[in-house]
Amino acid sequence: MEPLLSVRGLTVTFGSFTAVEDVSFDIHAGQTLAVVGESGSGKSVTALSIMRLVELGTRGKIERGEILFRTPDGDMIDLVQQSEDAMRAIRGNQISMIFQEPLTSLNPVYSVGDQVAEAVILHQGLDKDAANERVLEMFRLVRIPEAEKRMAQFPHEMSGGMRQRVMIAMALSCDPKVLIADEPTTALDVTIQAQILGLMRDLREQTGAAVLIITHDMGVVAEVADDVVVMNRARVVERGSATQIFESAAEPYTKALLASVPRLGSMAGRDEPAPFDLVEYQS
């Protein structure tokens, strides 16, 4: 089956610094691909490059590579070659994104309902009332209690978990084909993390969207991913299905990432956590 999104040889620079180098992966419809790696490994820049947001508001530049996306008409287009106008029609509509910090990712001076409705009005051409109806439907879908009342609230009046549900509702409001979630649970506490991951999994099954989840948390990967791409120092160091990665990781860096997940009883007989070895990926 042809992939829905295919990143090939992507290289992104910030001046003389190379943030992403020769990264390739495919995502198929209905599949969840996790891109994992430590901070600064190039995961978020890869995601922002797919949205072509790396060139807006940052000094990033896509130097090489292709980002092929299958449109609803079945054509494969290279997002790197699209004009800014064409990308605006794709962003938030066919490919949408959820960010790490739901408080700062929502505009503090507009109600959450208006912020979600804005995307619906823009891409689906609905009037205000119809857009509000759609927002209400989305809020119920992401299980926001008292959805109608919540629509008029501002981000600071909501809890972290509720804000992230709003972000998910916003991202899914136009039925995107690809959902990119950049560390969607990092800023949330553990019980809310589990709820949000469960919600994302359910929604993927309902909508059939492809999900690209970016995380440094192998626990999250185990929870949701079908396939995994491991990144370190701007490059892909290992890729495979989630089962392969967890059962028989080949690279020392991937093994170290897996070993960094705390396990119940790992402190038995110790006063302090054991220092772990730094693993450098040698290309």
């Binding site: 938030g92 509509n93 949408s96 505009n107 804005e118 972000m167």
Partner: peptide, 17 residues
Amino acid sequence: VLQSDYVRTARAKGLAE
């Protein structure tokens, strides 16, 4: 403000600059 996360969200929604 132009560097803030919510401006990035607005761009990610597909809004015109």
